[in-house]
Design a protein around this nucleic acid. Structure first.
Lengths: 201, 201
DNA sequence: TACATATCGATATGTTTTTATCGATATACC
DNA sequence: GGTATATCGATAAAAACATATCGATATGTA
């Protein structure tokens, strides 16, 4: 099954929208979702067709509870996935303390940093030297790299060696990596720039 | 001229790649860029055709300096754009102190927060009450919202009223906004989830 | 100089993604 | 019960996007 990035982003948006609806709302139409989120109604209906497979009824829409759990299952968010952060600077800690990942089945279980000053076991921040050991014991699937660019490559290598499957790279470095891991480069600046450009047209 | 998000992201990646090349490298081929960045060579060539319009030569490629400045001009990064951050928490400050935006012609000139504890004029963090005044005086085009979801809507309204044209929303709130501003919702969790899903297939 | 080759640029083809159209149907209202 | 309407689901059309192919042309080498 081929799920494209954009489709997944939309499905996540639907899911988030459904979850913040007040509990007394029991059904929701594709038209309403589309209006709230700024998509086309046909697109929403088509996206949901793959997920809910005919669960919608004319005039009322889809049952909220059922659609929610279908989305969760479809996206695989019922399976919990563990992640670690490498680099406990501002960005790393911001992500660490941000609670929003749990909504998508992801839990960040620890952070690591080379700087002993930043380490604090009571906050879940451990020395970089413990990273390999930790990942070996726990079943860590995701590594989030928030270290400076020049330190990113060895971190990537270490994570790969520990069995991490996916890497979310916030550094500006190009990471050489084996086929066995997926690396996603998050370029915040480029994201903002992209927003801006579409604006000015 | 219609530039899609994905195209802009690729062009930004090319630009970043060109900039980190050592200065002794004077020409670069589409094939090389494609290999380094993991795209197809034909795609890179096609993207660059729109930007460099025939500046490449067989066997050698494109002149790095010229291609760089053509990309900058094409993407509009020669024009400086000013941004403010509202919400000086960890994420807000991480973005504030991250230097990478200047590469794309964007400068974050101030941060604002309701909490007096977080304000510190020497660091460029001012009280929330000063926001409207500041945006009125300076020509601020971008507002970056990093406040909790329940406080995001009034911030959006205020920014809109101050003439901000684009809003980058990191909160989980759905922002009601006028036609005159473009709102881009950054859902970090969904980004990570999208990475993960494509992985498992 | 002749030749091999890396690369470009253009055109053509294929694929994915989005949008439009339309008949069918459950619900609400008279 | 009959009728109007919001909505679905399916199919078709259009648009956007990516990939493949191929001749032309600088450059380096024999």
């Amino acid at each position: 099954m081929n799920k494209s990035q954009v489709l997944i982003k939309r499905l996540c948006a639907y899911l988030h929208y459904l979850r913040q609806l007040p509990p007394e709302v029991t059904t929701v139409s594709a038209t309403a979702i589309a209006y709230e989120l700024g998509y086309g109604d046909v697109q929403v209906r088509k996206d949901l067709a793959a997920v809910a497979g005919g669960g919608g009824r004319p005039k009322t829409g889809y049952p909220v509870r059922m659609l929610t759990s279908q989305l969760v299952r479809y996206l695989g968010f019922d399976r919990k996935t563990e992640a670690v952060i490498v680099g406990a600077g501002r960005l790393g800690m911001a992500l660490y303390e941000y609670g929003g990942f749990s909504e998508y089945g992801i839990e960040i279980v620890a952070a690591f940093d080379k700087d002993p000053e930043k380490c604090d076991a009571s906050k879940g921040v451990y020395p970089y030297g413990c990273l390999a050991d930790f990942c070996g014991k726990e079943n860590i699937e995701i590594g989030i790299i928030t270290v400076p660019a020049e330190q990113a490559q060895p971190v990537c290598d270490l994570l790969t060696g520990c069995g991490v499957r996916s890497i979310w790279n916030f550094s500006a470095a190009y990471l050489r990596h084996s086929e066995s891991v997926t690396v996603f480069n998050e370029n915040m600046a480029a994201s903002l720039a992209a927003l801006l450009i579409n604006k000015s047209e």
